[in-house]
Amino acid sequence: MFKRILVATDGSALSKKAVASAISLAAQHDADLVALTVVPRYAASYFDGAMTFSHEEVARIENAWAERAQGMLDAISTRAKAAGVRIKTAAVPSDRVADAVIAASRKHKSDLIVMASHGRKGIKRLLLGSETQHVLTHSTLPVLVLR
């Protein structure tokens, strides 16, 4: 039924469950898997909520985040290959997680997005919003949300 599944992960415990489920689903359907993580950009100014650092220091921090993300994707790739799943990985730099997930699903011609729900409630949900909710409401693809 599915030919290409995109799984979005941030390395959290919940998203690790989503990755495991996506690998299993891809194996069951003989589907390709795309593992995606969105790497944040460092806030550029005081108004973005951060102290200002030199361009070199910002680059060092962003590189460290990208290396950590790639390490996480490499571990996912190893697990998927051990399960006999064909996999591609992508670390995308962006401050707009949901938009990056939707764009990646289009780029990779996915027919399903798998991601975790972080279960924010009350005021936190209103203030912080929900990347999963944004993907659910703006994607034209089916989205499997795991809790």
Rank of each mutant, 00 (worst) to 15 (best):
I76W: 02
G11T: 07
A83K: 04
Q28E: 14
A20R: 09
P93R: 06
T52N: 02
G49L: 00
L73R: 03
L36D: 13
V135H: 03
R79F: 01
L136D: 10
A82N: 14
A8Q: 11
A104W: 01
L6E: 10
S94T: 03
P93A: 08
L128K: 07
V101H: 03
S24F: 04
S45V: 08
L127Y: 08
A103N: 13
S77C: 00
H29I: 08
I113G: 11
S77F: 00
R41E: 10
G71N: 12
T137R: 14
L33Q: 15
A59F: 00
D99T: 11
V143S: 04
K81P: 02
M51H: 06
T132L: 01
K121A: 14
V135C: 04
A59W: 05
M51S: 12
E131D: 14
K17Y: 03
G11V: 01
L14E: 09
T78D: 11
M51Q: 10
V19I: 11
A18H: 06
H55F: 00
S15E: 11
S21C: 02
D95A: 03
V38R: 02
L128D: 10
S21N: 15
I113L: 01
I76Q: 07
A31W: 13
V85P: 05
P93V: 02
K121P: 01
V97D: 05
A35Q: 06
R125S: 14
L14R: 12
K121N: 13
I102V: 08
S77P: 00
Q28N: 15
D30Y: 12
T89H: 00
W65L: 14
A31F: 12
T52Q: 13
L36K: 04
A31L: 15
H134A: 06
A26E: 09
S24Y: 10
G129H: 12
H118Q: 15
R60P: 01
S94D: 15
I76Y: 02
F53M: 14
D99G: 13
L141Q: 05
G122A: 03
I123P: 04
I23N: 13
A13W: 01
P142H: 11
K88A: 12
A103H: 08
S130I: 07
L73N: 06
A116Q: 10
R41P: 00
I87F: 00
R68V: 02
